[in-house]
Design a protein around this nucleic acid. Structure first.
Lengths: 196, 196
DNA sequence: GACGAAATAGAACGATCGTTCGTATAGTTC
DNA sequence: GAACTATACGAACGATCGTTCTATTTCGTC
């Protein structure tokens, strides 16, 4: 049962790469197995169904996001610095070479936001966690005296999320090389408004 | 040749509806024809290929957006009022019952932003037009004295786009009923900062 | 009302989809 | 090294994909 876990990881890694290009529905067991030099049935046996494969791909991606973006930001001091770290991690995440087709969480959200099932439920929870993490970070910044006391932290979380999505969109669709600095400018404006 | 155009419109209308749920790749000629009570081959003959069907679906959607959101905003006076109208039109567009699966332009962008071809080219142009329209609207607002003279209108366009995308995302994925007022709050903050 | 063109239907195509099954190989445990 | 289990393979399944062909119906024009 050692070998199996290794292979599964290798499969999921490539599946994330593929799904970021073609979406979770566009992700195909045939193509995936061919690219990995495995047989369709051999790969399939690791998951038992395509639904389960999709779910595990999502889980692997969310886990990676929460490690590289969320948890990584925790090493910055509470308050504004941590929020800055989170935001910069997020921007870097959007260009992760492991997802050459763009953030899989964005793609999967658009795909599954109106299709009930375990995939949507899982995504929804992950998004809620992220939303709450930002709001909580803003609350800490208020307590630390970095942000003003009457700041709407839910609104702040919305604003941060919108900027990141705007970056994703403008960067990928318009191929605008200024996207990064525009996202940062928007973020700075947001911070300036939130400060005391 | 009268009848053909009518049928084609009926097809495209339903195709937009379907594609907003399942994406342009998930849109299937078989399902589409069944839902319309047509034969696969009869429907197919209207377009000649799935690529062409996708392209025409995109064209129909963009045309509708530019009519309902962009052109419609032109009836508001230049400057801030027109920008407000555009933004409100955009928010209303996101809930268009003709696209029950969410804005097709968002879905299609995520699907095609890394797949070269006529679909991506068309989308890119449409997005660029929208981006430029907002920037131009902001420039007019500067000239009208509504906005400050040193406003970065490109940045302003980025910000508006980000808010709309944030609304789409938070509204659809988190099913947050506050999404609308949050988007408007973000927009008001943006306007306040842009004013003289 | 006849005639040519446009629109639609029906059957079939090869390809690929997710999935199942039986079998062989590889790995782990005693 | 034997016994057992996990892992992988190959072939095949029915379903559906986009597409092609031929035939039939419906339409607009004289």
């Amino acid at each position: 049962m050692r070998k199996g876990a290794e292979t599964r990881e290798r499969i999921l890694d490539q599946a994330v790469r593929l799904a970021s290009r073609d979406g979770l529905e566009g992700l195909t067991i045939g193509i995936l197995s061919t690219e990995l030099g495995l047989s369709k049935s051999g790969l399939f046996a690791h998951f038992g169904s395509k639904d389960e494969l999709q779910l595990q791909v999502l889980q692997a991606t969310v886990e990676r996001f929460e490690e590289m973006v969320t948890r990584s930001a925790l090493s910055a001091p509470r308050g504004e610095p941590r929020i800055r770290a989170f935001f910069e991690n997020w921007l870097a995440w959007e260009d992760d070479p492991g997802m050459p087709g763009g953030c899989l969480l964005v793609a999967a959200s658009v795909e599954f936001d109106d299709r009930p099932g375990p995939q949507r439920d899982f995504l929804q929870q992950a998004h809620q966690r992220r939303f709450d993490f930002i709001a909580k970070g803003a609350r800490m910044a208020v307590e630390a005296g970095h942000f003003r006391g009457d700041l709407d932290t839910g609104q702040f979380s919305f604003d941060v999320t919108a900027i990141a999505l705007g970056y994703h969109h403008i960067h990928r669709m318009l191929r605008d090389t200024q996207a990064g600095q525009r996202a940062r400018a928007a973020f700075e404006r947001l911070l300036a408004d939130a400060r005391v």
